[in-house]
């Protein structure tokens, strides 16, 4: 359990823009991922999921906080010292169309990864590309095709093959199945599960679909307006959620079961703008249990045992309810 983490993020913060239009996209986020572990990031759009993914891979610069990869703080290293990160951490994207250069053949898309780290050349390189395609369930003969000759699901597989080319230890998967039809989504989920098993990959798996995250991940972090509301094992989060937002999210996800209780309790209102987040607890404008205290002070993440943490002033599981008004 206490194996040293592959990735450890502390106090990660990212602001975009300047004063009047300052967007607080990510605010003091901490989590860690052990080797071979899959951490899910869930939250509604704009909650900062993609931003965290890109920060972790150093595709954008953080405003504050540390990002340790295999113990080394990479958050401030210059690009030329990031070779080992580029070799060990990769990304898979949501949009199966925009994530592959339309003007390159599959051979060159995957080959680029091999070339960037001088992993193979000549016949070896071609062989390796074929092998990677077969790993993701595509015939090696497809390597001379262009992206537009593939369906969405197949393109997503190519994106996965590209990420695998460098034999990474960590993959940041940003909504990798959200743009796919259910039947194709299932194919890609199974593929990613297999690869995880085969290569012992750790993943930061971003999604807004709780069912998918629950299936894919060992642990889940729930985000709202750039803050972690709750984090814990998949089972804890989905069976025993402690935070009102997690509960609302679970209640709002429609169940594909006509006998399941229908959505009746639901959150009112919209997600506030990240330019003007509410004071105190950011969830208070939509929280059914909010009190004056919630407007005054920011709830700290507190432990519910076994690595399960949540950020709320009240713990309903222990009958810590706000006094009735």
């Amino acid at each position: 359990m206490s194996a040293s983490p592959l990735l450890a993020v502390e106090g990660l913060t990212k602001h975009f823009g300047r004063a009047p239009h300052l967007v607080r996209a990510v605010e003091d986020v901490s989590f860690h991922i052990a080797p071979g572990e899959v951490l899910g990031l869930v939250g509604e759009s704009g909650s900062g999921k993609s931003t965290i993914g890109r920060l972790v891979l150093r595709l954008i610069e953080s405003t504050a906080g540390t990002i340790r990869f295999e113990g080394q703080d990479i958050s401030k290293l210059p690009e030329r010292q990031l070779k080992f990160l580029r070799r060990n951490a990769q990304m898979v994207f949501q949009d199966p169309y925009a994530s592959l250069n339309p003007r390159l053949r599959v051979r060159d898309i995957i080959g680029e990864a091999i070339d960037a780290h001088r992993l193979a050349s000549g016949a070896k390189r071609t062989e390796r590309i074929g092998e990677l395609l077969e790993t993701v369930g595509l015939p090696a003969s497809h390597m001379s095709r262009f992206p537009h000759e593939f369906s969405g699901g197949q393109r997503q597989r190519i994106g996965v093959a590209r990420a695998l080319a460098v034999e990474p230890k960590l993959i940041v998967a940003d909504e990798p199945v959200s743009a796919l039809d259910v039947s194709v989504q299932a194919q890609v989920i199974n593929l990613m599960q297999d690869l995880r098993q085969r290569f012992g990959l750790a993943m930061l798996f971003i999604s807004h679909d709780l069912d998918v995250v629950e299936l894919m991940c060992d642990r889940i972090a729930v985000l709202y307006l750039g803050r972690v509301m709750e984090i814990g094992s998949s089972e804890e989060i989905s069976q025993r959620p402690r935070h009102p937002y997690t509960r609302a999210l679970l209640a709002a996800s429609p169940k594909a079961d006509p006998d399941a209780p229908k959505i009746r309790r639901m959150l009112t209102g919209d997600i506030p703008s990240p330019m003007a987040p509410p004071s105190g607890c950011v969830f208070r404008t939509r929280c059914p249990m909010a009190t004056d205290e919630c407007a005054r002070s920011v709830p700290k993440l507190r432990s519910a045992g076994d690595g399960h943490k949540f950020a709320c002033h009240y713990d309903t599981a222990n009958d810590e309810r706000p006094a009735a008004a």
Binding site: A248, L249, A252, S253, L267, I271
Partner: peptide, 11 residues
């Protein structure tokens, strides 16, 4: 739409 908003619209 997001799930919480989707729920509102469905209802």
């Amino acid at each position: 739409l997001d799930v919480t908003i989707q729920a509102q619209i469905l209802v």
